[in-house]
């Protein structure tokens, strides 16, 4: 258990409280927490995937206008996530596990963001936080199969979420030459519903 592993759920709580802006720090901290343990191939792949899933969405969202969905949810949501984390810790302690379940706490925070927030970008960030948490606990638990499945789920969420955002949200610059930023590969068939 390291300091970085404790930082990961805290940054995930920031995602719940403030939104997609904290996704990149969450990814960086997750990658660090994976790499602190050692430099086996599983850890390197996991860190790379965590960075990828955290870095692409903010970069992609710079092309779109700010999501102006009015949030009706109050300020209590991060505390709800915190309470769930504490419950999870207690349950793990009760089961006799001494390891701090950093990845699962991150996953719980992401789940709360998905369930309690209404804006689609926020839900996307929450779902990707969930994936980061599963990636982290798969790497720390040395389970490459689960790591692969979580990477697949992350790719699905990233691609289809990006596609839906492309179809729903207004662009910053309406006309732009395709292929300049290299991110056009993310939304095959997009733009039909915009």
């Amino acid at each position: 258990m390291t300091l970085v592993a404790i930082l990961v759920p805290m940054v995930a709580l920031c995602v719940v409280a403030r939104g997609v802006g904290f996704l990149l720090p969450a990814g960086v901290v997750t990658a660090l927490a994976m790499l602190v343990d050692g430099l086996a191939p599983v850890q390197e792949v996991g860190a790379m995937l965590a960075l990828l899933f955290a870095a692409l969405p903010p970069f992609f969202l710079t092309r779109y206008q700010h999501d102006a969905t009015h949030e009706r949810t109050g300020a209590a949501v991060p505390f709800f996530a915190l309470a769930l984390m504490v419950l999870l810790l207690l349950a793990c302690n009760h089961a006799g596990s001494t390891v701090f379940p950093a990845g699962l706490c991150t996953m719980v925070a992401g789940l709360v963001a998905v369930v309690c927030r209404q804006s689609m970008v926020w839900q996307w960030a929450g779902l990707l936080t969930c994936i980061e948490g599963v990636l982290l606990s798969a790497v720390l638990g040395h389970q490459p199969v689960v790591l692969g499945v979580a990477a697949l789920a992350g790719a699905v969420v990233l691609l289809l979420g990006g596609m839906c955002i492309h179809r729903i949200m207004p662009r910053v610059v309406p006309v732009r030459a395709a292929g300049q930023r290299g991110r056009r590969t993310e939304q095959p068939g997009g733009g039909a519903g915009a």
């Binding site: 793990c92 089961a95 996953m107 969930c130 798969a138």
Partner: peptide, 14 residues
Amino acid sequence: SVGTVLVLSGLLLP
């Protein structure tokens, strides 16, 4: 995806 993530994290626990 929420369902998949929940089952995966259940599989990661002892």
